[in-house]
Each structure stands twice: as structure tokens, then as C-alpha cells.
Amino acid sequence: MPPFFSSKSPKAFPLIISFFISFGALAQQALPKGQALVFAYFKGNGQDGLHLAHSQDGYTWSALKKDSTFLRPTVAKDKLMRDPCVIRGKDGLFHMVWTVSWNDKGIGYATSKDLVNWSAQQFIPVMQHEPEARNCWAPEITLDEKTGTYLIYWATTITGKFPETQSTADKAYNHRIYYVTTKDFKTFGDTKLLYEPGFNSIDATIQRDGKRYVMILKDETREPAQKNLKVAFSNNLLGPYGKASAPITGKYWAEGPTAIQLSKEWLVYFDKYTERKYGAVRSTDLKTWTDVSDQVRFPAGARHGTVIQVSQKELDLLLKQ
């Protein structure tokens, strides 16, 4: 150990304490005053529903309600609530979509004003028209703030599509990202292809970065194995998105990305599902990435979810549950 940090040095402990106080202060400054972060996630197979955790710095997360469910799934044949995506809508409500089954042709949807009390759940049959569709996985919502239109997108395998990337591995799934648009979650546009990256892809999430949009998605290729996260950019929410980048995650399998910008720093969280824990990478320019998985702490068993910013008042209500 260098002399600066030697336990024999009388200056060591004040300096170390000062360092951690300064680091904590910097972390707190990343969030506006009176704001907090909430992470929506599932556990197990998603059978018990929505779980929530909170954080003040984006690195240390604590489960809410003793890690019990905030909403139990009631729709679709399998009644699962996997991969919950929650955003705040233009109407001030929280809108949530989720995976209802491993092999259904629709997704779940519900709203809430406070993340505690939820509307009746709905099943949206986004791929019901497609006879060869096998599934609808990991739906997400992104709001076009200029038009007030919501983009709902997810991954589906349509048997016979994209034969150039077809494999017999992973039950022969060969996903691409599809979407619908809506302004009111009552009427929806036609289902269309959102992104064809040239590989089996799932778990897309889209964030606005100034005047452009960044899509973070999983390369699901099994042979040879990729199982990593990549990014692609577009000047428009509906695309076209450019060529996917090199992997931004390391030599481990990662999925279920969710991202947030804190001050000038982007944090992308993801499920290191083969290791049964959460990881993260950070960047200031969305080009150069640093793995900070050893710095984040999530509730045990947390799976694919989304991060959202809430007010302290909203968090106080959640803390009372």
C-alpha cells in the first residue's frame, strides 16, 4: 500500500474520509434537488409482478416495500409480468408495458398516477395479425415530446423471416425489433419493423440525446456467441438507425439494458443473467464506455427493468408502503 494511504500515517484517515465525502457529494449533485431515482424490475419468472427499488446516486439501490410486489399480473394466458418498462407520459401518468408470456402475441399495459395505485391491466395484441409470430418480448415505450406520440417497441421472432441469420440454437429464435405508435393507448398504428441490424436482436431501449436518439440493444446471436449490448443512432425516433456499434459490455452475457443521463454522465444498467446479478457501464459521449459493474448494488434477484426519475414527494409515498 502506498505511504499516502498507510494506516501508520496520522493524515491517512482524514484524507480518506474527505475523499468519500467528496465522492458522495458529487454523486448527489448528479440529481436535481428534490428528485430521486426508481428502478422497476421483476424477479424469478415474473409470476409475482412488479418490484421497485430506489436510489439517490444511481449506484446503490434499495428495495421498496421489503421487496414485495407493487402490482400482480392478471392478463394473458401465462399471467407473467417480465421486463417492466415504466415512463412518465405527457399526461403526467406513469405508463407501463411488460412481457406477459414467453410465447404470446401481445403485451401488457397499465397506468398509475403514483406507482402504487394502478389501473386495470390491458392486453395489447400487437402481433395478433401475424400468423407466424412466436412471441413479444421486452416491450418499451419512448415518448416523442414534439408530437405527443408514444412509440411502443419490442422483439418478435416471425418464423421464416431473415433466414440469413437463422440458427437452430436458442430454440431457433431469430428476433427483430418491431413497433406501433399511439397517442392515447386506445388506438394504435399498424405494426412495422423498427430496426434490422443484421443480427438476432432483442431488448431495445431508446433515449433522446440532444437532437438525436440512441438505441441500446442486445445482440442475441448464439453461434458464435455475442450476447452483448450495442448502440445505434438516428436523427429521428422512428429511424432509420445506423449500423450497430461494437459491444459496449464486456466478456460476459448481458441483456435488458436501461439508461439514464445524470449530469453529463450516461449510465446503462443491464442484467448479467448468467451470473445472476446486475451490471453497468458509463460514458460521457456514448462512444467510450467504462465498466462500473463492481460499483453498483441492486436488490438480490433483480431482473430486467427500467430506471425513471421521480420527485421526492413521489418517493416518500413509495417509502410508506
Rank of each mutant, 00 (worst) to 15 (best):
F94N: 01
Y195M: 02
A300H: 12
A36T: 03
D104L: 06
G24L: 05
R297H: 15
I16N: 05
A225F: 15
G301T: 06
K211C: 11
D144F: 00
I206C: 08
I87S: 03
E164L: 11
T182K: 01
Q312Y: 10
R303H: 11
F94K: 00
D48T: 04
T142P: 15
H175N: 12
A138G: 10
L318S: 06
Y153H: 09
W266A: 03
Y178L: 02
K211N: 09
S112E: 13
D83F: 03
D271H: 08
Y41W: 08
A138I: 03
G108F: 04
Y241G: 00
Y150W: 04
S18Y: 04
K320Y: 06
F162C: 08
F4L: 15
N174P: 06
K146Y: 05
L237V: 01
Y241D: 01
W154M: 03
E220G: 13
A302V: 09
W61I: 07
K8A: 13
K251M: 12
K8S: 15
D170I: 08
W61C: 15
K218D: 13
L229A: 14
K211T: 09
G92C: 05
F13H: 12
Q128N: 11
I152R: 00
H54S: 14
S119A: 12
S112C: 04
L267Q: 07
Q128E: 12
N228V: 09
F188A: 00
Y195W: 11
G46H: 01
N228Y: 10
V38R: 00
P247T: 01
Y178G: 04
H129Q: 10
K171D: 14
R88D: 14
P32M: 01
Q166V: 05
F233H: 02
T149M: 13
L193S: 05
L31H: 05
V296I: 06
V180A: 07
H129W: 15
T221K: 11
D285K: 01
N174W: 06
D57W: 00
D91Q: 00
I152S: 01
A169I: 11
W253N: 11
K264A: 09
K211F: 09
A53K: 01
E130Q: 06
K218V: 12
T156N: 08
Q309H: 12
T258N: 07
Q122Y: 14
